[in-house]
Write a protein that binds this DNA or RNA. Structure first.
Lengths: 251, 251
DNA sequence: TCGTCCGCATTGACTGGACAATGCGCTGTG
DNA sequence: CACAGCGCATTGTCCAGTCAATGCGGACGA
């Protein structure tokens, strides 16, 4: 059965017989070794690909996938205080040292998708400004981040210019009189849409985190919806908490 | 080509021609309709399955998958807390009303996996206690949650008993003199291991969030590592943040 | 009326082939 | 020595078929 082949290969990957980056036996070799048809071997390999363990490099063969996640911190933009020693160590361990960043910013005025409009309290037909950002690391697309703002509050502001805002879009919003005091984060885990897979150059077997952050002003008006798509094989999402009170935590 | 068939079906699912729960044409029907071999049709259907859009119900046919996510809040779940109106509304919208919960608890003494041991600052060979929980909703496995504690501090405590601890394991730890004041959360997104897929009854095309929470006492000792596996199709992870309070309220 | 058994439609697993596409490396040429 | 071109190993796509497993529903019998 193909499951035997699949499991044997998976075991070899897990125990290091096949280390990261190593080449697997070719389809022909496996066909001969197990005495089965090629379709059977391909099914075994296909499942490993779908698990994200293996990448086919046509026509060179199959290779064990390497995983080099970067830390993604939803918290980073809010916090000014220093992080704890643990967080520092963790970030250092997964740092981007030596990798070359690049980003592309694009600004547009759109009628947002229904779920975005709902979060911004926009009526159907009302417009929003969107800053679309694609970020790259070492020439590899890393994540996409689209931030939506109600058009009437950011019109003619710095936010509409497709350039990097060093002090952050949140600071600009604050200067415009819409300082955010609260945010609601949602995180969905799913397989990418074909469009996302293309934009992020995702191989099969790579799920994504879909992160939606809605920022509110003190009078409970939503002024920003940030949508991020994070490839699972390139990220670890991390945040820190402190207990204000002795408290339970459960999932 | 199989891509045409796949895309045509995906379009029908997206635009509602095939609604959630509806049956797709059978392999035989598609074979006839497109005049291709069965393998081609199966490849098209297989990719839709891997995207999590479609579920094969052997031998009844292929059906459009339904998605019913529950809110998962790393922030206190039992704690009555003054959540904001937005959070309340969001939780209400994705509530578990009318669903029947069940859970199974198992306690063991183990030599933890290297990554767990490292987070607990345990030397190789040192032991940990682990409380393994599987939680169900409407007979469907919902998530698994394994909490590890250094054995020497929980030995003979209530934590070693495989029963529900109403006031929470964290409170027990606090009573033992190890009150947690800080936690570091990590979230990985990946495809499930075969073991996870079996325990959680995951179909193909269902990614998981792998959530690791390490809790620290005031003197920076890690006393608890909670590992959760959350099926992507049954969860939306959500948390709330506030800007720069004296005590940053976590995410 | 109720229960049991069996047929059948459908997917799962597999065979053994065919031809196309594609990088890599070698070879031969200028 | 540099470069262009070709061969080749390998995966991608596809075909036509076989047999097994499985749940549902209808036919049949008590």
């Amino acid at each position: 059965m193909y499951q035997q082949i699949r499991d044997a290969l998976r075991r070899q990957i897990a125990d290091g017989t096949l280390s990261a980056g190593a080449q697997l036996p070719t389809e022909a070799a496996l066909t001969a070794q197990y005495g089965v048809g090629r379709a059977t071997v391909r099914q075994a390999l296909g499942e490993l690909v779908n698990e994200g363990l293996v990448v086919p490099m046509r026509p060179r063969g199959y290779f064990v996938k390497e995983r080099r996640p970067m830390v993604f911190r939803p918290q980073a933009e809010f916090r000014k205080r220093p992080y704890s020693a643990e967080m520092d160590a963790f970030v250092t361990e997964h740092s981007a040292d030596g990798r070359e960043p690049r980003q592309l910013i694009e600004v547009a005025i759109v009628e947002p998708a229904p779920d975005i409009a709902k979060r911004l309290h926009l009526e159907p037909g009302e417009l929003a400004a969107v800053r679309r950002r694609i970020r790259w690391l070492d020439g590899e697309p890393f994540n996409v981040n689209d931030s939506y703002f109600p058009l009437d509050i950011v019109r003619d502001s710095e936010i509409m210019r497709p350039e990097d805002i060093t002090r952050g879009a949140n600071e600009v919003l604050a200067e415009l009189g819409y300082r955010q005091v609260r945010a609601l984060d949602e995180l969905y885990v799913r397989m990418p849409t074909p469009d996302e897979a293309r934009r992020l150059e995702l191989g099969p077997g790579t799920p994504v985190a879909y992160h939606v952050c809605t920022g509110y002003t003190a009078d409970a008006r939503p002024v920003r919806v940030a949508v991020s798509v994070l490839p699972g094989d390139r990220h670890v999402i991390s945040y820190e908490r402190q207990w204000e009170q002795p408290q339970d935590r459960a999932e």
